[in-house]
C-alpha cells in the first residue's frame, strides 16, 4: 500500500503555510499527525500533489488556560491532551474522550486540529466540541477568523474551512459542573458505534444547565438543544432522563454500515446517551 507521489513541504510559521496552501491550490493538503490522511492516501482515496507538514510550526503547539478560557493549539496531540494536568483540572472531559480514541500509538501522533478539521463523522472530538460550544480559529492568506464548532460541520468531510485556511487552535470556556463522554465501540481502535458528550450544571438539586452532543450518528456531529431543554429545571430523575434521551434520538440520523443496521444504532445510542447523562449528573 504505497501512496501516490507528492511534494513535501515543512514550513515553520502559519503565514508561510497559508501562502503555500493558496499558491498550490486544491492540489495541496496540510499534514498534521497523518493518522487519518495517510491511511486514505495509502488507499489512494485522496490524491494529493503537495503535502504541507505542520510539525515545525511552534505557534500551533501548546495549551493555554487563562481563567476559564482554554485555548489548545491545533498540533497538540491526543497524548498531550491526556497528559496535561492543568487541562484535566478545568476540563476533564477532554482527557476522558481522548482516552477513548484509537490506541496509544495513534494518540501519540493524532492531533486535536486534525481530529476536528478532518470532517469524518466518526471522529470523537467534533462531538465533544459541539457540547462545549467551542470556537475554531482559522487563518488564511487574508487573515484570521473564528467559526463556532456548531456551525463548522456541513456534511461528511465538508466543513466551513476554506481550502486555503489553516485551523490554528480550538478555544472554549471551561464547563462548570458534571461531564461524561461515553462511547460504544466494537474493539479498541474502532470508531464509535455511538458516543455522547454530556455536560450538566447543578443548583439546588436541579439541573441548572445542560449540553448534549453525539458522535457518528449522522453525517455530522449532532448537538441536541432539545435534549438539554428536557433536562433543565428537572431533578434529573428517570423520567427526565428518558425524555432527554428521546429528544436526543429525534435529532440523529444514523445509516446502516458494518457497525450495524439503523435500529441497532438507535438502540445503542439510547443506552449511551442515558449513561452519559447519568454519569454527568453523578459528577455535577
Amino acid at each position: 500500500m504505497i501512496p501516490a507521489a507528492f511534494e513535501y513541504h515543512r514550513p515553520v510559521d502559519v503565514t508561510s503555510a497559508a501562502s503555500l496552501l493558496r499558491r498550490l491550490g486544491d492540489e495541496a493538503r496540510v499534514l498534521a499527525g497523518g493518522h487519518s490522511l495517510i491511511p486514505m492516501m495509502k488507499l489512494r482515496m485522496a490524491a494529493i500533489e503537495h503535502l504541507i507538514d505542520l510539525q515545525d510550526i511552534d505557534a500551533l503547539k501548546g495549551i493555554s488556560i487563562d481563567g476559564d478560557t482554554v485555548t489548545i493549539g491545533a498540533m497538540v496531540t491526543q497524548a498531550e491532551l491526556i497528559a496535561h494536568e492543568g487541562l484535566a483540572k478545568v476540563a476533564p472531559i477532554l482527557r476522558e474522550a481522548a482516552l477513548q480514541i484509537a490506541d496509544p500509538q495513534v494518540r501519540y501522533m493524532g492531533t486535536l486540529g486534525g481530529n476536528v478539521a478532518n470532517g469524518d463523522p466518526g471522529n470523537d472530538m467534533p462531538g465533544l466540541m459541539q457540547a462545549l460550544g467551542a470556537a475554531f480559529l482559522l487563518t488564511g492568506p487574508d487573515g484570521a477568523r473564528e467559526v463556532a464548532a456548531r456551525d463548522f460541520y456541513e456534511a461528511a468531510y465538508m466543513t466551513a474551512r476554506e481550502e486555503d485556511e489553516i485551523l490554528t487552535a480550538v478555544r472554549f470556556t471551561a464547563p462548570p459542573g458534571g461531564y461524561a463522554y461515553e462511547k460504544q465501540k466494537r474493539k479498541i481502535g474502532d470508531y464509535a458505534t455511538a458516543a455522547a458528550a454530556v455536560l450538566i450544571g447543578k443548583e439546588g438539586g436541579r439541573v441548572a444547565h445542560a449540553s448534549v452532543a453525539m458522535t457518528n450518528l449522522s453525517d455530522t456531529p449532532v448537538w441536541s438543544p432539545a435534549a438539554a431543554k428536557a433536562l433543565t429545571g428537572t431533578d434529573c430523575g428517570p423520567e427526565a432522563i428518558r425524555a432527554a434521551t428521546e429528544a436526543a434520538l429525534a435529532d440523529i440520523d444514523p445509516t446502516e454500515d458494518n457497525r450495524g443496521p439503523v435500529a441497532f444504532k438507535r438502540h445503542v445510542a439510547g443506552i449511551i446517551i442515558t449513561r452519559a447523562i447519568q454519569r454527568a449528573w453523578s459528577r455535577a
Binding site: Y8, R10, L31, G34, H35, I38, P39, L51, D53, Q55, A79, P104, Q105, V106, Y108, M109
Partner: peptide, 14 residues
C-alpha cells in the same frame, strides 16, 4: 513516542 512506522512518511521522520 511509540509510532506505527507504516503510518509515518519518511519525510515526516526527517
Amino acid at each position: 513516542k511509540s509510532v506505527k512506522s507504516c503510518t509515518v512518511f519518511a519525510a515526516q521522520a526527517n
